[in-house]
Design a protein around this nucleic acid. Sequence first.
DNA 1: GATGAATGAGAATTCATTCAT
DNA 2: TATGAATGAATTCTCATTCAT
Lengths: 181, 181, 181, 181
Amino acid sequence: MGRRYDPERRQRIIDAAIRVVARDGVAGLSHRRVAAEADVPLGSTSYHFASRDDLLVAALGQVSDEWLATVERWVEAVDPDLPLGEEVARFVTDSLSGDRTRARLEYELYLAALHHPGLRPIAAGCLDALTELLRRRTGDAARARALTVLLDGLMLQLLLTDRPVVPAEVRALVDGLAAPV
Amino acid sequence: MGRRYDPERRQRIIDAAIRVVARDGVAGLSHRRVAAEADVPLGSTSYHFASRDDLLVAALGQVSDEWLATVERWVEAVDPDLPLGEEVARFVTDSLSGDRTRARLEYELYLAALHHPGLRPIAAGCLDALTELLRRRTGDAARARALTVLLDGLMLQLLLTDRPVVPAEVRALVDGLAAPV
Amino acid sequence: MGRRYDPERRQRIIDAAIRVVARDGVAGLSHRRVAAEADVPLGSTSYHFASRDDLLVAALGQVSDEWLATVERWVEAVDPDLPLGEEVARFVTDSLSGDRTRARLEYELYLAALHHPGLRPIAAGCLDALTELLRRRTGDAARARALTVLLDGLMLQLLLTDRPVVPAEVRALVDGLAAPV
Amino acid sequence: MGRRYDPERRQRIIDAAIRVVARDGVAGLSHRRVAAEADVPLGSTSYHFASRDDLLVAALGQVSDEWLATVERWVEAVDPDLPLGEEVARFVTDSLSGDRTRARLEYELYLAALHHPGLRPIAAGCLDALTELLRRRTGDAARARALTVLLDGLMLQLLLTDRPVVPAEVRALVDGLAAPV
DNA sequence: GATGAATGAGAATTCATTCAT
DNA sequence: TATGAATGAATTCTCATTCAT
């Protein structure tokens, strides 16, 4: 009876942890809140994740993966005949219109990584993967890198100021950057 | 008993709070640690800053001011005859060479605004002031805005990846952006 | 200039203290809250009332006085031709219909007095004064005493159960008591 | 280390809480004092009773049960051939002779319900149970209700004034009430 | 006289973690 | 394997009171 390893329980805990971080921030992540959110006994979170840090790493790793998947879906769907600026503007608009929780989560990861060596590789890996995805479209590594810089700066500023996305501005920004060097 | 009447007490507490955030991160900011760092009784920090958030606001405000002062000194010293990319590369290099603590601190507090609505106005104000400073050099508001986006994205990524600044890349990035739209 | 004694300030503080007790209970009475409620500096409450207890005694003393004044107004207005039960029912109904704050305050005083020797005389004095007032109507000290017992028990139970006053029941209660001994 | 696994821990904490209220009043009830009184670590009281209110509810519940048990023993022992007034006088005398701590405690917690909505149901339940017990003797619900009113008023006043019980007065009071309506 | 700064104690909670079962 | 009880440290915050001005 009962597998000696129950991956579903583990996954449920990770999902709950992400919801807790989304709601309360990285600082608000605790075994207790996650246990309550996942509706599992308190001991269960300690059992699957020996320390709070393990939980954090697992949760933010998954946030990073999901974010990259979102980006990848977008990259795959980009119309090569349209100007890149327009496509980027659409992506940013989609990501920040309506519920910004998902995007905020990604930057929550960055914040945590600034002071948490265990998270640094995840954040850095996410950045690199993002660049590689963009290179598929730009064809040019330098331009892809520039684009991730722009994307990160832009989304961060929009999240921090709570300002709405203005697609025309995003387009101008990207097109300015895309100009031949 | 003890040192009553200490007119600089408040300022000393803010300075200590900044040191604590630099050392332990935003999550590590607590009345206790600040009190210990400032060498004042615990009650004293509560007296001057009723809540942890007040402390955070004061710290971010001062860090932001100092950061803007640094930027302003740079802007004033920019040689208008040199390409802007070169000057920006110098600024980024200076900010991130040697001890990155200061820069990390700036972005740490900055990102904290993601989950602290009380910090949002300060972060937004800092951004706007930064843009205005840059406009003095670019002469063009849109370009100045683009430049802040680039700067934020760039510094955040360099801090997250722990990679060294490569001046040539920064130059290329800025010059690409600076191309007439 | 300025009187060396400012009775208005003192009175304003007492009034504020009563509002604080009404809102937060005896346990919620503090120099700080009273100062805020009275809109006077914190030091001012300490100055006029050296200790929290002094403040409590002053506040509950006034509550007692006001309560007795209310009772006296009723006693004076009692129609000697009507059955006493009816008049008592009217008093209880008036006291507990609408805002029960005032009545609750009186019993808050009793609660505090149970554990606060300094308040005991006030509570006891209030009880005796009440009995004396009622004696004016009953003419008979024993009946007056019985009536205060009944009144206290009744009002306490109504306050504790949050039940509405049923005048007929009050009348029956008092009339039952009023039967010749 | 220490004494883990202590199945009676919870009960010991409740007992300690009751002693603390008896000693320091409802206002003096705190996790710390209870922990000290029960000789358990501070965290233990929080573990078993998440909030101070939970502690209060548990304490009032138990005091109320014990009080009702006392009353029931008396009711069962009442001699139906004696006048009720005499029996009531005996009960009041027994309850208030010697150490009044127990009775004071009962009314202390009882009155606390004035400002603690969570305690109201317990206080009301206690009242109703008391009435039901008395109905066994009076046979008449209205008379039983009247008797609880009288008992509450009487005991409260005796506790507040620190006056001794005068059995004859109690008898007169009850007999006056007991007169057919 | 009047007051704001200061302080040390103590409040309720929350927590990560350990451990007996 | 899994879990709930237990614990001691740390959290924020409030407070009565003192005292220099």
